[in-house]
Simulated scan of single mutants.
Amino acid sequence: MDKRLIEAVELFEDVMVFGTERVLKNVKADIWQEYSREQLQVLKILHKNGPLSAGTLAELQHVHKSAISGRLKKLEEKKLIEIIKSPEDQRSKLIKLTEQGANVVQESDQAVYDYIETLFADQVNDQELEQFVTMFKKIRSILRLEGPTHESDTEI
């Protein structure tokens, strides 16, 4: 196997593990104190993908359906999500983000963006940032196993 690919995978893993840890430790937003990381991830998934079934959410978070049930109950109590009937099958239920839930996602995202912008300010120039975005669009497109590929994913 190509040693560069091995190095790339190891670097990607390091960025994912240590980057997530650093962001979680250093972003000081009230929203991150009010909701768990897993709850915020559910909201973010719904924001990006639209209404989904509880089973699909469990798959995307790599947890059992019982773990999702607890999260969804808390989010529904806080009026961040609502349960609706599927337009395709009235017997199926989907989880939908409410406007209040979308506001929580936006507030959480803004806290992360502000932190990353400060962190990268003097470390990453415009050309490097453009290369980073291009490469991650390509990686996202390659890794997507289900669902349609968006045109913007493959722009290079």
Rank of each mutant, 00 (worst) to 15 (best):
N49T: 12
T56E: 10
V104T: 06
S92W: 01
I84V: 10
T56V: 14
L129P: 02
Q110H: 13
K85M: 06
F132A: 13
K48E: 13
H62K: 15
R37N: 05
L143P: 01
I95L: 02
I95Q: 11
G70W: 09
S141N: 13
Q131R: 12
A102T: 06
G70K: 04
I83S: 07
R144E: 07
K28Y: 00
N125W: 08
V42T: 05
Y115V: 10
V15H: 12
T149R: 10
L72Q: 03
F132E: 02
K138F: 09
L145A: 08
L40Y: 06
L24K: 06
I84A: 00
Q90Y: 11
R71C: 00
D122P: 05
A111C: 07
V9A: 14
K73W: 06
T154Y: 05
K28N: 01
A58Y: 00
V15C: 14
S53F: 04
E10A: 14
K48R: 14
E13R: 11
S152P: 02
E77V: 00
L5R: 02
A121V: 05
M16K: 14
L94C: 03
V27E: 10
R22T: 10
Q41V: 12
V23N: 09
L24C: 08
D153R: 05
D14S: 15
H62Q: 10
A67R: 03
R144W: 01
Q61W: 00
D126A: 15
Y35P: 00
A29H: 02
L129Y: 15
N49Y: 11
I6Q: 15
L72W: 03
M135H: 09
N103I: 06
I139R: 05
D2I: 01
S108F: 04
R37S: 12
E38Q: 11
Y113Q: 10
E77R: 00
T149L: 15
S86E: 01
